[in-house]
Design a binder for these strands. Structure first.
Length: 473
RNA sequence: GGUCCCAUCGUCUAGAGGCCUAGGACGCGGCCCUCUCAAGGCUGCAACACGAGUUCGAAUCUCGUUGGGAUCACCA
């Protein structure tokens, strides 16, 4: 049997990193054995609906290359794939479940129900409506009295189920409360819609956060009442911000789109999160999506929570940037240049110098800001022990370098380097005594991406000469 | 509070009784390379939460302790 998995986000307008990781695992479980990956939108809570949220979901999955085989936009044999369009289905099954003895009509208001339970004393809701004979309840429903449909938990003892990640889990039926399956507005709750849809869509593997472990027996009870076979459960550990807190929108933690906006490449983000809670069993760490499809094994998923470490993502992003074709990198870099560089410069030369030196696209503006505007700097910058330079030597070197550069015909890094070295040799100076001051004069910075000749190449002849002259004056 | 789950370097992890004087990666330190800085190469520091068992032998099995997390909605 090939696997069918589903990513079932609710459209909240935010692609949480943990959710994206869940989607990835779902995708990989499906693709690892030629199965289908289905996208379903869980919008049963009208109060939480956010305009444009589904587009964020679509766009994110598309940019990371996780294409779905069935979904709201492309259809499929088991649609519709948006829960709000499946309402009649849930209602039909909910009433059917009542007939089957798996649920009952309840006429209590929410407040009445709340009053009856006590979390501290661990008293679960005991619904008086459960005692109402079905025939009588049906009459009240028919008369138009507001109602919800609640699950029946009649079993005693321990519920048992198997999870791919956590193994066998036992939960006492007394811990389960008879929750609402169909709300008074006719919408299903997550608990119910999920089971109905997963069954109807023939989902084989349910992957979700481990916060659902304790309610899993409730789902199984519904499957059981209908006479359906429950799916394989894959509960995954949380993605944490730190040891105590999980990554969350409330804390302002980065979403996928935030990370992209911060200059991370989608492929790098995906690669990184794949490794948060999973490993291939080898020492390989860099994986494309296609490679992951080949090596993914859900049995290697970890039980313990993983802390999201931006430092490692940064490193990995740097790896991806360096691995880019020069043309591809240059194209991305140009978009950044457009944001802060107004002068004519040698952009290719700049990209060449930047590619091995940055870890995120946003580093570009930070590290190359001096290209646009020469910062104010003190003459003390010219003093460097290792280079054996100080302000006096710098003055002399710059004066010597200026005419040499002015005479230089072909403005390339190689020629510039050669030219400046010759200035040093001809005047019995060390290379650094010329190169270092020139670099400082061109950048006003102690450390820069690239050396004097490389930066001169980027700036171009006119600007290079202008900056040196400026210092000389 | 009841219940469930988790526990190896700071972080991500390898480890399914002897291969472990615990391996890799990020980060951090050092060295090399070098027109500064990166990149690259080499290298160093750094962990089995604790306590009892079981066993000839335990990071690996059992129990307890401690610590952390989850859950107990007409939210998903």
């Amino acid at each position: 049997m090939t696997a069918r998995t589903r990513f079932a986000p609710s459209p909240t307008g935010y692609m949480h990193i943990g959710n994206l990781r869940t989607a990835l695992y779902e995708y990989l479980i499906a693709k690892a054995n030629g199965g289908q990956f289905i996208l379903r939108i869980e919008d049963t809570d009208q109060k939480r609906y956010v305009e444009g949220a589904t587009d964020i979901i679509y766009n994110t999955l598309k940019t990371v290359g996780m294409n779905w085989d069935e979904g709201p936009d492309i259809g499929g044999d088991f649609g519709p794939y948006i829960q709000s369009e499946r309402l009649p289905l849930y209602q039909e099954y909910a009433h059917k479940l009542v007939e089957l003895g798996g649920a009952h009509y309840c006429f209590c208001s929410k407040d009445e129900a709340d009053e009856q339970k006590d979390e501290e004393a661990n008293i679960k809701f005991k619904d008086p409506c459960k005692m109402i004979p079905l025939s009588e309840a049906k009459v009240r429903v028919a008369k138009g009295e507001p109602y919800v449909i609640r699950q029946n938990i009649n079993k005693k003892g321990k519920a048992m189920f198997h999870d791919v990640v956590y193994g066998d889990i036992e939960i006492d039926y007394d811990e389960l409360d008879e929750g609402v399956l169909l709300k008074s507005d006719g919408f299903p709750t997550y608990n119910f819609a999920n089971v109905i849809d997963d069954h109807l869509m023939k989902i084989t593997h349910v992957v979700r956060g481990n916060e659902y472990i304790s309610s899993t027996p409730k789902y199984n009870l519904i499957y059981e009442a209908f006479g359906w076979t429950p799916p394989t459960y894959v509960h995954v550990a949380q993605v944490m911000k730190d040891a105590q807190h999980k990554l969350s929108k409330r804390n302002g933690d980065a979403s996928f789109q935030d990370l992209v906006a911060k200059g991370y490449l989608p492929e790098a983000i995906l690669n990184y999160i794949a490794l948060l809670g999973w490993n291939p069993g080898t020492e390989q760490e860099i994986f494309s999506l296609v490679e992951l499809e080949k090596v993914f094994d859900m049995n290697r998923l970890n039980k313990s929570p993983a802390i999201f470490d931006i430092a490692k993502l940064k490193w990995m992003n740097g790896c991806y940037i360096r691995a880019l074709d020069f043309e591809a990198f240059h194209k991305l870099a140009c978009r950044e240049y457009d944001k802060f560089i107004t002068h004519e410069i040698n952009r290719e030369a700049l990209s060449k110098v930047l590619q091995p030196r940055i870890e995120t696209l946003n580093d570009i503006a930070e590290v190359a800001g001096f290209i646009e505007t020469l910062p104010e700097y003190s003459d003390e910058l010219f003093t460097n022990k290792k280079m054996k330079t100080d302000a006096d030597i710098a003055k002399k070197s710059l004066a010597l370098a200026y005419p040499a550069l002015e005479a230089l015909q072909t403005w390339t890094n190689e020629n510039l380097f050669e030219c400046l070295k010759n200035v040093a040799v001809a005047n019995e100076l060390k290379n650094g005594q010329v190169l270092y001051p020139v670099r400082i004069a061109l950048t006003g910075l102690e450390t820069t991406p690239g050396g004097a000749s490389e930066i001169a190449e980027v700036l171009g002849k006119a600007e290079t000469l202008r900056r040196i002259k400026l210092k000389l004056a």
